[in-house]
Amino acid sequence: MTGPESEGLQLRRAVCPGSFDPITNGHLDIIARASRLYDVVHVAVMINQSKKGLFSVEERIELIRQVTADFGNVEVESFHGLLVDFCKQRDIPAIVKGLRAVSDFDYELQMAQMNNGLSGVETLFVPTNPTYSFLSSSLVKEVAAWGGDVAHLLPPVVHEALVERIGKK
């Protein structure tokens, strides 16, 4: 083994959690920025049994792997349960979350404080690039379902998958 771990150095790890149904350019921007700050960025795709996603968890994982492949330090996997348990199992001390607006902060601050209280995991808030401040997966799916052009809001491979999926509905 070569690199920091072979030299006894601890790798700096963080997680970017979400449902990513589908991953947008806004998500990708936050993951890219985290990948420049951390040695390893885990993208944790949330499994919510009570919600039927447009894409299966496996499809979301594959799309995220494709669009983050060039970063070289991103690992993508699913999780079910408490995010702090995911972090403990992988020795991840930090959660990276993008904030679009003040309304995001209210909710995310409560979650950050709960996560820290449960496990000591820290949450770092990254302000969203203003280009993507309005963007959400739900909004993209809704606009696309009505025939709106969302190509500029998604990585090309994700846009292709979305158009194909919506065309089948």
Rank of each mutant, 00 (worst) to 15 (best):
T2N: 04
T2S: 10
P4H: 03
E7I: 03
G8H: 10
G8A: 06
G8C: 08
L9C: 03
Q10P: 00
R12Y: 02
R13M: 01
V15W: 09
P17A: 07
P17G: 08
G18W: 13
G18L: 05
G18A: 10
S19C: 13
D21A: 10
P22F: 01
P22S: 06
N25K: 15
G26I: 13
H27N: 04
L28P: 05
D29Y: 14
I30A: 14
R33K: 14
A34Y: 07
R36M: 13
R36I: 00
Y38Q: 10
Y38M: 08
D39I: 06
V40W: 02
V41P: 05
H42M: 05
V43M: 08
V45K: 05
M46T: 14
I47N: 03
I47E: 14
Q49C: 00
S50F: 01
G53H: 03
F55G: 04
S56Y: 03
S56K: 08
V57G: 04
R60I: 09
I61P: 06
I61M: 14
I61V: 15
L63T: 00
I64S: 02
R65M: 00
V67L: 00
F71C: 00
F71L: 15
F71A: 04
G72R: 01
G72W: 02
G72T: 03
N73R: 04
N73F: 03
E75R: 13
E75W: 00
V76A: 06
E77F: 04
S78P: 07
F79K: 11
H80L: 12
L83E: 03
L83R: 07
V84E: 12
V84L: 04
V84D: 05
D85P: 06
D85Y: 05
D85H: 15
F86H: 11
K88M: 07
Q89V: 03
D91H: 10
I92H: 02
P93V: 07
A94E: 13
I95R: 11
V96D: 10
G98Y: 09
G98N: 12
R100V: 14
A101I: 10
V102M: 15
S103V: 11
D106V: 13
Y107M: 04
Y107A: 12
E108Y: 09
E108W: 11
L109E: 02
L109F: 15
A112L: 08
Q113W: 06
N116A: 12
N116H: 14
L118D: 07
L118I: 10
S119W: 06
S119Y: 09
E122S: 14
E122F: 00
E122H: 08
T123W: 05
T123F: 07
T123H: 01
L124P: 00
P127Y: 04
P127D: 06
T128H: 10
Y132K: 10
Y132V: 13
Y132H: 15
S133K: 14
F134Q: 11
L135C: 13
L139Y: 11
V140L: 05
K141V: 08
K141D: 01
K141W: 02
E142Q: 14
G147H: 05
G147S: 08
A151R: 09
A151C: 00
H152C: 08
L154G: 03
L154I: 10
P155Y: 01
P155H: 05
P155F: 01
P156Y: 09
P156S: 08
V157P: 03
V157R: 02
H159D: 06
V163H: 01
V163Q: 04
G167K: 06
K168W: 00
K168H: 01
K168M: 01
K168N: 06
K169W: 11
